[in-house]
Amino acid sequence: MTTLGVVFRPQLAPEKLRPLVRAADAAGLEELWLWEDCFLESGVAAASAALAWSERLHVGVGLLPVPLRNVALTSMEAATLLRLFPGRVSLSVGHGVQDWMGQVGARPASPLTLLREYLSAMRALLRGERVTVDGQYVHLDSVALDWPPLEAPPVYAGGVGPRTLRLTGEAADGTILDASFSAEGVRRARQLVDEGRESAGRTGEGHHKVVVYLLAATGPGAAGRLHAELAREGKESVPGLGVAGDAGAVAKAVQGLVEAGADTVVLQPTADEPDPEGFVRFAAEEVRGLVP
């Protein structure tokens, strides 16, 4: 069955998170996703609060920028969340926005090398292994978590370009695709991920999940808000991006992404969504029932 989620965008002030989490939990939303965007909000701090404020809501962080974070710290934080809230957390990592990484003096010369080394070390640490590695970017000397997760979790990685998408297949357990992917884009991305899995000999490891964000708007002025956001991103001329309309229209767009290879679709409201809590209820109470 397709999993449906909503993202809490960090353009909303942190204090807006609690009422939205309560609304999501009460409405039966399956997943709430958070971003760690510079210089807005911490993904891990927000995830911890959201999990504590809810009873059954699954919380994902997509994604944590690896140049900004030592892999041991990210693994410690991940393990803590996974033990505090077993079965309710998904974490993903990625390059981050390179201009932002440059602003804090953390821009790597080879983002692909860093992400590959990071994924290898993080997955090993979360399996409870003792890790020694002296890579180009990742350096660990006999590091092991004292409180690893009780069960090794999947580690997702985000990607846009072909080489990164192949890498997510090679080295991650799942892939995060942002809202710049149409259904056709998701189909091509899934092919690249599968190529990476095949090159790494991982095709027998089980299903590699793909999480896709879908820019969505509903209610009065929905089409205008959607077009304005796409225009701000310079993507208003890209066919098949985003959806504006009622629950039926949104569900149809979700199904198109699923048919292209998405396992989870996360509805991404526009940055100027006038009723974030209402958007959560719309997703959980109106769209969910129309998505197989």
Rank of each mutant, 00 (worst) to 15 (best):
S48L: 06
A283S: 07
S199V: 01
A13L: 06
T264G: 05
V21K: 02
L230P: 02
L12G: 02
R188Y: 01
V6T: 10
L140Y: 12
V66Q: 13
G196D: 10
H207D: 12
V133R: 14
P67F: 05
G221F: 08
V238R: 14
W147A: 14
T168M: 09
R166Q: 15
V243N: 05
V287N: 10
W33S: 05
A49K: 03
V7E: 14
W33E: 05
T203P: 02
W53S: 02
G206W: 07
E198F: 04
V138A: 10
V212I: 06
L145W: 12
G219N: 04
P86V: 09
E55F: 00
S237Q: 14
P19Y: 05
P154D: 08
S199Q: 15
S142M: 04
L192C: 11
G185N: 14
G158N: 03
W53A: 05
V193I: 12
M1K: 14
P269E: 06
R22Y: 00
H208T: 05
D37H: 12
L226D: 09
A262E: 02
L63V: 15
E31L: 15
P276E: 07
R197L: 04
T203M: 15
G204N: 05
A179I: 01
P153W: 01
R56A: 09
A271H: 13
R127T: 05
G234K: 01
T74Y: 04
R9Y: 03
V258M: 10
V238L: 11
A262L: 03
A260H: 09
Y213V: 00
M101R: 06
R107E: 12
P111S: 11
F282M: 08
R18D: 07
E31R: 15
F279T: 03
Q255S: 14
G161E: 11
A45I: 12
R188M: 04
P14Y: 01
P162C: 08
L177M: 01
G102Y: 12
G240E: 09
D141N: 15
D173P: 08
G240K: 03
W147T: 10
L226S: 09
G105K: 09
